[in-house]
Design a protein around this nucleic acid. Sequence first.
RNA 1: GGGGAGAUACCAGAGCGGUCAAAUGGGGCAGACUGUAAAUCUGUUGGCUAAGCCUUCGGAGGUUCGAAUCCUCCUCUCCCCA
Length: 305
Amino acid sequence: MLKNAGGLHKFNGWDRPILTDSGGYQVYSLANTRKLTNEGVVFNSHIDGSKHSFTPERVIDIQRIIGADIMMAFDECTPYPCDYDYAKKSMHLTHAWLKRCVEHDKKSPFLYGYSQALFPIVQGSVYKDLRKQSAETIASVNAEGNAIGGLSVGEPHEMMYEMTELVCDVLPADKPRYLMGVGTPVNILESIALGIDMFDCVMPTRNARHGLLYTRQGVINIKNEKWATDFSALDEDGTSIVDKQYSKAYLRHLFKAQEILAGMIASLHNLAFYLWLVGEARKNILEGTFSEWKQSMVGCLDTRL
RNA sequence: GGGGAGAUACCAGAGCGGUCAAAUGGGGCAGACUGUAAAUCUGUUGGCUAAGCCUUCGGAGGUUCGAAUCCUCCUCUCCCCA
């Protein structure tokens, strides 16, 4: 399935795949309100306080029903910092849950006439031996693609890159390597250089809602006063429809007026920028110019405009 | 015409003799955000030759060691009655 992801393949009857997460990240982000056992996780709804539980089996069932083309295994995303003993214990828990996910996945039939891939997730915090061991375990599952979790949770970038590189050396190169939760435009380019093929992140949309725009010249905080009377296009080089349609001053006004449209326009812009960025990366890889191109991009992307 | 209430920083609004450059909201300015409990959170918001000093609480006087706080007059707002 994924080998055809370039074009001809139809996914869930549409032309774009659906990817669902397992809830593993909620185990991390809802740390205050959940109870974790070997069986799974119990947590209270923030909406009405009702109890809910995630187990590896249940998480597969849910993703089946959603019909995701790529389902994620249930894991525990450890926080940073995380002491070695806990990281080790947690990694083994994630591996045990993975086994249950895989078994349950095999047992349960596809519901909508197309197959669903199940990606396992490497853990191991920032410890090299754990990361290596986890990557080997994950690779041995022989899934259609492999994910790296537990990074971009507050550790220094250098550490994140070091772990990514180490894990990429173990995970098969002929299957997608998916770095979960990353990241900034620079993070993405650096990670591609280390062998990553897939990403997902809240950054382009959440930061857009908060007024941060990514461009190839650098980062704009559109809420800043300096844009108040700048009536130039949102992004002269932008590829999305909003980029030339709206001015910086207008978007700033929408933010100041707390118009919901502000977050929508900014999100469209950032998403288009991310798409352009990885598209360029792909092009440069194919042309053998990725390294130089990345070098030239990284210099600008972090600039504050 | 008679009676009453009040004027505080950009706005609203506490404070009612010293611990007040003045609570708290809002607004302004800036920052954070990385498998989305996130249209969220944080800092800052009189001026300077800044651990100190200077000018602020409608205006002008006064009382006091000391006033945004007490007294007198003035100006202006709002409410009730006629």
